[in-house]
Computed example of a mutant assay.
Amino acid sequence: MKVPASGRLFTIGLIACWYSSNIGVLLLNKYLLSNYGFRYPIFLTLCHMMACSVLSYVAISWLKVAPLQTVRSRVQFVKISSLGLIFCLSVVGGNISLRYLPVSFNQAVGATTPFFTAVFAYLMTLKREAWLTYITLIPVVAGVMIASGGEPSFHLFGFIMCIGATAARALKTVLQGILLSSEAEKLNSMNLLMYMAPVAVAFLLPAAIIMEEDVIGITIALARDDSRILWLLIFNSALAYLVNLTNFLVTKHTSALTLQVLGNAKGAVAVVISILIFRNPVSVTGMLGYSLTVFGVILYSEAKKRSK
């Protein structure tokens, strides 16, 4: 069946919006946490989660972007809360890593998500993939090891935070499949975000107050001196929600596989743009390592597709 031109244009527009919001929030996070000097990654994540809480409710309840799904039991709520905590840790870890690492290296480490997903899936469900799928993970890990050795701006704490964030992201994916596996408990990504985000806010608010001393007072004082910080935080938080919304819509109007393929290319685009904007030094070894990781991820996607 031929897809109408207007439908194709709409899909292309959605993909462009998904790319822009993904890369935009990554670059803006880096700018705020590193270049601007707003060194409060937990508070920044709190702003993101507050925006996700409010905007996802508006999108589902008022704009009807997705049908409203209710939490059916206390057990289901506990499961969602557990996912919310892991989701929150992955975002905080990613934001902390951006204080110390360039976006290009952050993306290289983030590309190892399939490796951690395969490891957690085996450890938690004893689910074995085809041997070819595991072989494709070798270049994924080898690429990051090469990129680490050739990264001029390598920072050990930033690297540990980035690895932790990547592992948490993979753990959330695997746990989501286990915890919300029954048809009665399954939630689409927009409803899951609407319930997870307030849980993340509940964890992040005391964490920001305790670990980032007087962060609210400092932010207010900064806003008095430079109102731009307020607009940057609001725009950044809205963009963080837009990433989730466009992710859901692109999957709905194309497929999960298309999203995966586009995601592989997105990392490479983000690397090139970040190098052009931030002028961070790169080495030939680092770029070769990152290229090997991306190649491994593409092979992994192909192997997974063929094994189904």
Score class of each variant (00 low, 15 high):
residue 25 V to E: 02
residue 58 V to I: 15
residue 90 S to G: 03
residue 85 L to C: 09
residue 87 F to A: 13
residue 91 V to R: 02
residue 108 A to D: 01
residue 25 V to K: 01
residue 72 R to L: 12
residue 59 A to P: 02
residue 97 S to A: 13
residue 94 G to P: 02
residue 27 L to F: 10
residue 60 I to E: 09
residue 40 Y to F: 13
residue 54 V to W: 04
residue 89 L to T: 10
residue 100 Y to K: 14
residue 36 Y to Q: 01
residue 21 S to P: 00
residue 17 C to S: 15
residue 74 R to T: 09
residue 89 L to C: 14
residue 41 P to G: 07
residue 65 V to M: 10
residue 93 G to Q: 04
residue 62 W to K: 14
residue 75 V to S: 15
residue 70 T to W: 15
residue 97 S to W: 10
residue 14 L to P: 04
residue 34 S to G: 07
residue 23 I to N: 01
residue 76 Q to C: 10
residue 23 I to W: 00
residue 52 C to G: 03
residue 54 V to P: 00
residue 17 C to E: 06
residue 35 N to H: 13
residue 82 S to F: 13
residue 56 S to V: 08
residue 59 A to G: 03
residue 101 L to V: 11
residue 61 S to I: 06
residue 40 Y to E: 11
residue 98 L to Y: 08
residue 54 V to M: 11
residue 41 P to R: 13
residue 48 H to Y: 11
residue 39 R to T: 09
residue 78 V to S: 13
residue 87 F to M: 08
residue 102 P to H: 11
residue 104 S to N: 12
residue 13 G to I: 08
residue 72 R to M: 10
residue 32 L to K: 04
residue 43 F to C: 08
residue 70 T to M: 14
residue 20 S to W: 03
residue 63 L to P: 06
residue 83 L to P: 00
residue 26 L to N: 14
residue 100 Y to I: 06
residue 52 C to Y: 07
residue 73 S to R: 12
residue 31 Y to F: 14
residue 62 W to N: 15
residue 95 N to D: 11
residue 76 Q to H: 11
residue 33 L to D: 02
residue 23 I to M: 07
residue 66 A to T: 04
residue 101 L to H: 08
residue 76 Q to W: 14
residue 14 L to S: 03
residue 73 S to I: 10
residue 73 S to W: 06
residue 98 L to H: 03
residue 80 I to Q: 01
residue 14 L to T: 00
residue 65 V to W: 11
residue 41 P to V: 03
residue 84 G to D: 02
residue 31 Y to S: 04
residue 106 N to P: 01
residue 22 N to Y: 05
residue 70 T to N: 11
residue 26 L to P: 01
residue 89 L to K: 07
residue 13 G to V: 10
residue 35 N to V: 15
residue 88 C to R: 01
residue 35 N to R: 09
residue 37 G to R: 07
residue 39 R to V: 13
residue 101 L to P: 01
residue 92 V to D: 04
residue 18 W to D: 09
residue 37 G to K: 13
residue 46 L to Y: 04
residue 86 I to G: 00
residue 33 L to R: 05
residue 63 L to H: 15
residue 19 Y to E: 05
residue 58 V to W: 14
residue 50 M to Y: 11
residue 92 V to C: 09
residue 43 F to M: 12
residue 104 S to A: 15
residue 25 V to Y: 00
residue 71 V to N: 09
residue 40 Y to L: 11
residue 55 L to W: 08
residue 96 I to N: 09
residue 26 L to Y: 02
residue 94 G to K: 14
residue 21 S to A: 14
residue 26 L to K: 11
residue 13 G to D: 08
residue 89 L to S: 11
residue 54 V to Q: 00
residue 36 Y to N: 06
residue 38 F to V: 04
residue 97 S to I: 10
residue 31 Y to D: 00
residue 20 S to D: 07
residue 18 W to S: 10
residue 60 I to C: 06
residue 99 R to I: 14
residue 91 V to L: 05
residue 55 L to F: 12
residue 88 C to N: 08
residue 25 V to S: 02
residue 34 S to L: 11
residue 103 V to G: 00
residue 88 C to D: 05
residue 92 V to H: 04
residue 82 S to I: 14
residue 74 R to M: 10
residue 21 S to R: 03
residue 19 Y to K: 05
residue 102 P to G: 01
residue 60 I to V: 13
residue 47 C to I: 07
residue 80 I to W: 00
residue 90 S to C: 09
residue 105 F to K: 11
residue 102 P to C: 06
residue 69 Q to N: 05
residue 14 L to F: 12
